[in-house]
Design a protein around this nucleic acid. Structure first.
Lengths: 207, 207
DNA sequence: CTAAATAAAGAATGAGTATTCATAATCCTC
DNA sequence: GAGGATTATGAATACTCATTCTTTATTTAG
């Protein structure tokens, strides 16, 4: 009984937390961190402002929790898929496919993710923000590692793995960006896997 | 005499304007648009707050003037260099070289440029902001056009020119980003021209 | 040299909003 | 079902700035 009550409470707490983050995600994606107000979040999540502060200690904590959870989910998907693929080319393909698939289903979050890569962490680095930043960099190291292995086995050229990893990441982000701008239909982002793979592996020039 | 006086005034006006924008650039690059205050800009530019409002009508106008001038300068450099190069590969190389060179000398501005690509214009679209956004998109069309020509002449594969242009742009941005993070020595960004060119034209895979 | 005009200055204003807190509603426990 | 927690509420608070505006300094013209 006591156990049940506690667990129901916990469950309800988690549900509220999710609902709040989900409302916040939409707003942060649409208007950015600074132009999103606590009042808007409260209204959209159907809580009173005071209640927000019961669940999170500040606006920044809402934002960073959101980013941290999504980034973590994203990275573990990538980790899962790349680690089962064998061979450099297959791992790269798994990476591309996973990333495109993830952001196809998290279109809103992409805007936040990109902002994170390119701006926010420069202006507001709490210990928490740093943590996310470190995760993103670690992820790039992982990509670089795939490329490095490929270079050792002779599959890939001897281009600096770190640089190639950044380049590939930039290509993928730009592709997702382009897709979002164009308001393309569902399913069509994942379909670009082949193009990116082809471009990254073989380049654009005819041989 | 009258003419001279007027032109001195104009010159002084331009100087003040440049000094103000240059102080603002450093601050916007370091702290972003929202966390930069008019008081800071005034202090760094050694003007009183009221004087800022004599030169620009608002904080947003300072920001947008800055971005507009730099973007315009950047685009015209690119235009100049790509138009004199002949052949797809040479034009692509000219583009890469010009971009890397520009941002090697405008490191601060890169942060603003990236923020512009990925965030600000989503939150604050004045007519002025739109203008910058359009310029950036037009620029990408120009890159796409180079690729398209290359595809017609058989130099390049038939990958969607727009997509390839976005991918190349993303690769370049990521490379500059990586270089800035690593705090590399002067001259070393331009030196990456070859790597990007190689990667974009021939890919990473050994043939 | 003087006064009108223009420019510089920064203190005062006012709008916006993150956070707090006193009060009301709800939930448990017995 | 009573009262003592606990939780929800949103008005009040406190603070940060962008912008304005009055005052002071400088420039110009006659």
């Amino acid at each position: 009984m006591v156990d049940l009550k506690v667990s129901r409470k916990v469950r309800e707490g988690q549900t509220r937390r999710r609902e709040l983050l989900s409302a916040a995600e939409v707003l942060f994606a649409k208007n950015g961190f600074f132009k999103t107000t606590m009042a808007e979040i409260a209204e959209d999540a159907e809580f009173a402002i005071g209640t927000l502060y019961q669940i999170f200690k500040s606006k920044e904590e809402i934002y960073l929790s959101l980013v941290d959870e999504k980034v973590t989910a994203y990275l573990s998907e990538v980790e899962a898929h790349t680690s089962t693929a064998t061979g450099g080319a297959a791992k790269i393909e798994a990476l591309i496919r996973t990333k495109l698939n993830f952001f196809e289903h998290n279109r809103n979050f992409f805007r936040i993710y990109v902002a994170e890569w390119s701006g926010f962490e420069w202006t507001a680095k709490s210990a928490f923000g740093d943590r996310i930043w470190k995760k993103l960099l670690t992820h790039l190291d992982m990509i670089a590692h795939i490329i490095e292995i490929g270079a050792h086995t002779g599959e890939f050229k001897g281009i600096s793995p770190k640089e190639a990893a950044f380049a590939l990441n930039g290509m993928m982000n730009a592709t997702i960006f382009h897709w979002i701008l164009g308001n393309h239909p569902p399913g069509s982002l994942l379909a670009k896997t082949g193009v990116i793979k082809e471009l990254f592996l073989s380049g654009i020039q005819k041989s």
